[in-house]
């Protein structure tokens, strides 16, 4: 069963990614103003979508762990955090690659990119907490609380950064052509890419979760072994 799901997800991800690559590089027309570089957007936006989705999963899974207590929710939370960090980094990198040829700077402080950067910091904090607290028994609960606080903060961050941008127009570089995707073929390419990235994300999440579940199982077996040893030693006495 687990093997079948894994294979199905792998196949779906690969196929959809191939389709997406075709759509992005062949099917969608070149954008008039920005040229070929604009195609990065078809990867940039889906990565952002995954990064934010993943953070939501971190928080919801954390909340479920606090409520239900079952370890699997904590493993899901951790897996989502690791992947979310990866995709968030990709958003920032693709954003940078996109910015340089178009606007001449490596970084634009536009509101969406800034919000994503702050999300990246939130991910970083979460993963650092996990790393430092590895040998702590209660780290799962602490991480869950941090995740919930983080996700509550995201809407406030979005609003505040947007307001902040309206005060600093000097550095403003409007991202035209972003939602002004004129050609329906571009929209189609974007949608396919979104789907492909989501599938890849789910597949990777599944893989990572399986690994963490295995680790939990090994921990459980170790505990059973230790109990048997103790019981055996007691019987011998």
């Amino acid at each position: 069963m687990k093997g079948a799901v894994s294979i199905a997800l792998a196949a779906a991800s690969c196929l959809s990614m191939i389709a997406a690559l075709f759509m992005v590089f062949v099917y969608a027309p070149t954008e008039a103003e920005q040229g070929i570089v604009q195609r990065i957007f078809y990867f940039h936006l889906p990565c952002a979508w995954v990064a934010f989705l993943s953070f939501g999963i971190v928080a919801v899974a954390g909340a479920l762990y606090l409520w239900l207590g079952h370890r699997i929710w904590d493993d899901l939370s951790y897996a989502a955090a690791e992947l979310g960090m990866l995709f968030c980094t990709l958003v920032l990198v693709t954003g940078s690659i996109w910015a340089k040829p178009i606007w001449g700077t490596w970084w634009t402080w536009d509101s969406r990119l800034t919000t994503t950067f702050i999300l990246w910091l939130l991910y970083g904090g979460y993963l650092l907490l996990r790393a430092f607290g590895e040998d702590n028994q209660e780290i799962a609960r602490y991480a869950a609380v941090l995740g919930i606080i983080g996700v509550l903060d995201v809407p406030v961050i979005i609003i505040s950064v947007r307001l902040w941008r309206t005060i600093h127009p000097a550095v403003l570089l409007t991202r035209q052509g972003e939602h002004g995707l004129q050609d329906p073929r571009m929209v189609a390419a974007l949608l396919v890419s979104l789907g492909a990235f989501t599938l890849v994300f789910v597949w990777l999440l599944w893989l990572r979760l399986s690994t963490l579940r295995l680790r939990a199982r090994i921990g459980g077996l170790r505990k059973e072994l230790a109990l048997l040893e103790v019981a055996g030693a007691g019987a011998r006495r």
Binding site: I118, G124, L128, F132, G133, Y142, V145, I159, W164
Partner: peptide, 28 residues
Amino acid sequence: LATVSGRVRGGAMLLPVLVVPLFIPALI
């Protein structure tokens, strides 16, 4: 969060790392 960082090793350094990004909206 100080309750959390206080129980984790290296916690004193960890607290600002956790709090500052969360505090950004209020900071702005």
